[in-house]
C-alpha cells in the first residue's frame, strides 16, 4: 500500500498507472457515522487540488470532499448512489469515490504517506 497518500482533510489517493483512485479515510467515515448520500462529480469534470469535488452526507452532517490533486474525473463510483453504506463498510476499497486522470504527478509528493497520516490522526485526539 505504499502508493496510497492522504490529505489533512482525510481523503486518500492511490496511484494506478496514469490515473488515481480517490476516497475518504477510515477515520473520516468513523467520524461521519452512517453515510446516507454521496454526491459525485460528473465524468469529464476538471477538478482543482484542494477544491470541492464531492459531498458526503450522514443524517446530521454534510462534508465536502476536496480533490487531493488536480485532474480530470474519468470515473465516478455509481454504486455509491444506491449503496452509500459501502463508504462505511469499505472506505479504502468498494467505497472509492472517483478516478482522476492526473494533471501533475508531483502534487502527490506533497501528500502524507500512511505513517505520516496515522500520526496526524493521532494528533487530533
Amino acid at each position: 500500500m505504499s502508493n496510497v497518500r492522504y490529505t489533512e482533510d482525510h481523503e486518500w489517493i492511490r496511484l494506478e498507472g496514469d490515473t488515481a483512485v480517490v476516497g475518504i479515510s477510515q477515520y473520516a467515515q468513523e467520524q461521519l457515522g452512517d453515510v446516507v448520500y454521496v454526491e459525485l462529480p460528473e465524468v469529464g469534470r476538471k477538478v482543482e487540488k484542494g477544491k470541492e469535488m464531492a459531498v458526503v452526507e450522514s443524517v446530521k452532517a454534510a462534508s465536502e470532499v476536496y480533490a487531493p490533486i488536480s485532474g480530470e474525473v474519468v470515473a465516478a463510483n455509481a454504486a455509491l448512489t444506491a449503496e452509500p453504506a459501502k463508504v462505511n463498510a469499505d472506505p479504502m476499497g468498494d467505497g472509492w469515490f472517483v478516478k482522476l486522470k492526473i494533471a501533475n504527478k508531483a502534487e502527490l509528493d506533497k501528500l502524507m504517506d500512511e505513517g505520516a497520516y496515522k500520526k496526524f490522526v493521532e494528533g487530533l485526539h
Binding site: 448520500y37 450522514s58 443524517v59 446530521k60 454534510a62
Partner: peptide
C-alpha cells in the same frame, strides 16, 4: 434529507 437545510448546511 435535512442536510439540505440551514441548521446543518448553514451558508451552503
Amino acid at each position: 434529507l435535512s442536510t439540505r437545510e440551514q441548521h446543518i448546511r448553514r451558508e451552503k
